[in-house]
Write a protein that binds this DNA or RNA. Structure first.
Lengths: 125, 125
DNA sequence: ATTGAGACTGAGACACAATCTCAATATAGC
DNA sequence: GCTATATTGAGATTGTGTCTCAGTCTCAAT
């Protein structure tokens, strides 16, 4: 039994910001863009709302080692990321791979996975 | 031109701790184990030394989204990780998968990759 | 074995991201 | 409109990691 959820300007603003982006955003970038929609929105609300949206599977986080997590709308479905080691851009990848369940010993149950490729993007190579 | 490197009890202790582990460790776990070898070692030294060992390619970091980075000796070669969503332990996986290069568009060069599986370990399932 | 330059150390101060607290506010059902 | 309560914003707090600096240790030169 989850608690009641209310529709608020702040949450709608954050959803609007994320749905108009091509790549994942940092929390303070999200706050800066949301401030153009609601006159004042605190950073605590941004973090809280991102967590709620993650629980509701509307948003997912993208983590590149050594960098702060970014957030993107999850309506792009299951996908992975390519991180350019030179310009540090992050690209979405369309496909996935088979055989991941073969990696684990028996007795382990695989529920989810993530794959991050590192290298040089088209522009940097 | 890198600066001169000296052999110290603290650095040797950290290398010894990491080389005797089956999975990656958190900085404070490393400190706790290193304290059994050198009578007193500060947390700042642990962080500093881990960074030096990473630069020297003797240690590499393992990052699980939402958790602090862990560190392990890089002499175990290429492998990936399994994260238990219940007890939050991290296990090393032996095998790897094929076909990762097929994920990227032409023009992108893949240099490295990481795969993290999430689920329930043998003890928690 | 002794010396000295400077790399290294530990403790505490500091910086930053993220979370928590709580009074004030906004929302949904009536 | 009115009420119960989910949500908010500001500031305090936590947690992770870095910086500072006086004192220590290492190692090549002697």
């Amino acid at each position: 039994m989850s608690i009641e959820r209310r529709t608020t300007k702040q949450k709608e603003a954050i959803k609007a910001v994320l749905s108009h982006q091509d790549g994942p955003l940092l929390p303070d970038e999200i706050q800066a863009l949301a401030l153009k929609i609601v006159p004042s929105i605190g950073i605590a609300t941004v973090y809280r709302t991102l967590k709620i949206l993650q629980d509701d599977n509307l948003v997912c986080s993208v983590e590149i080692p050594g960098q702060a997590p970014r957030y993107e709308s999850s309506d792009r479905g299951h996908h992975h990321h390519f991180h350019c080691q030179k310009c540090h851009s992050v690209f979405d990848l369309e496909k996935c791979v088979e055989g991941l369940k073969n990696l684990v010993p028996s007795g382990f149950r695989v529920i989810d996975h993530e794959i991050t490729l590192h290298g040089l993007c088209k522009a940097c190579d």
